[in-house]
């Protein structure tokens, strides 16, 4: 079954994928991770990618974020096709336009919180002083203004994820990809992190693509694309998905 996860209004599209395929390996041991995915993500939208392990979620956000080359199909992100612009331009594009939030936070433990947040600005050539000042400003917005000089290991999981979100936001990207942002957090902290991401998406006209297994955060999604075996098999809004899940039969 192939579900059309595209939208009709082309003016407001941040990510447009058509028939995207990706295969790992070759020969009999080849694994088809994506088998022709059609997906649109609107500007300002929070789209969640859900599905069982190995269904292709991470591969899809890797392709969307420009860190993995697709094998076939088309994929435009903010009007750019990475296959056409080449690796160097793709790297520059990521530096300017894409923010990342990782499951394991990926904060550099030997840098302070402010230095970690400042990294995307430094990559973009902003001076160190300016980058640290901007990082401190963003950290204040997420409630960590008093922890700028701490190292990440001194922070709780939720605080570390807020630092990671600050790092994803600091250079004002147009797209943020999040890989399991709440899986290492308890429920309450996960909720707060998602509230923050939701707020960010709404306030900055940002598109967010969030890969998650965590059904407790589905309510924060504008749309949820459910994947299985390298395809999008179901598309729903956050609320309708929750409702649908409640309607599932329970074995007694």
């Amino acid at each position: 079954m192939r579900v059309d996860a595209t939208v009709q209004d082309g003016q407001n599209i941040a990510v447009r994928c058509r028939g995207v395929t990706k295969t790992y390996g070759a020969g009999p041991s080849a694994v088809k991770a994506l088998r022709g995915v059609d997906l649109d993500v609107e500007r300002g939208e929070l789209l969640m990618l859900v599905g069982p392990s190995g269904c292709g979620k991470t591969t899809l956000i890797s392709v969307v974020a420009g860190v993995l080359n697709r094998d076939g199909g088309e994929c435009e992100v903010l009007g750019e096709d990475f296959a056409r612009i080449g690796p160097a331009a793709t790297t520059r594009f990521r530096a300017r336009n894409v923010g990342f939030v990782f499951q394991a936070f990926n904060l550099i433990p030997t840098l302070t919180v402010a230095e970690n947040v400042a990294v995307p600005l430094l990559i973009n050539g902003v001076s160190r002083r300016e980058a640290i000042a901007k990082a401190a400003e963003v950290l204040s917005r997420v409630g960590l203004g008093d922890r700028t000089n701490d190292v990440p290991t001194r922070l709780s999981g939720g605080q570390q994820q807020r630092v990671a979100i600050s790092r994803a936001l600091v250079h004002d990207p147009k797209l943020i990809v999040c890989d399991e942002p709440t899986s290492a957090l308890d429920h309450a902290t996960g909720q707060r992190v998602m509230e923050l991401l939701r707020e960010v998406a709404e306030g900055h006209d940002l598109s967010l693509v969030v890969v998650t297994h965590d059904a407790r955060i589905f309510e924060f999604a504008d749309r949820i694309a459910e994947m299985d075996d390298g395809r999008i098999v179901r598309l729903s809004t956050g609320q309708s998905h929750k409702k649908a899940e409640h309607e599932l039969p329970v074995v007694k």
């Binding site: 790297t91 520059r92 990521r94």
Partner: peptide
């Protein structure tokens, strides 16, 4: 991570 974030 740096590479993903755009470090060449």
């Amino acid at each position: 991570t740096l590479k993903a974030m755009g470090s060449g």
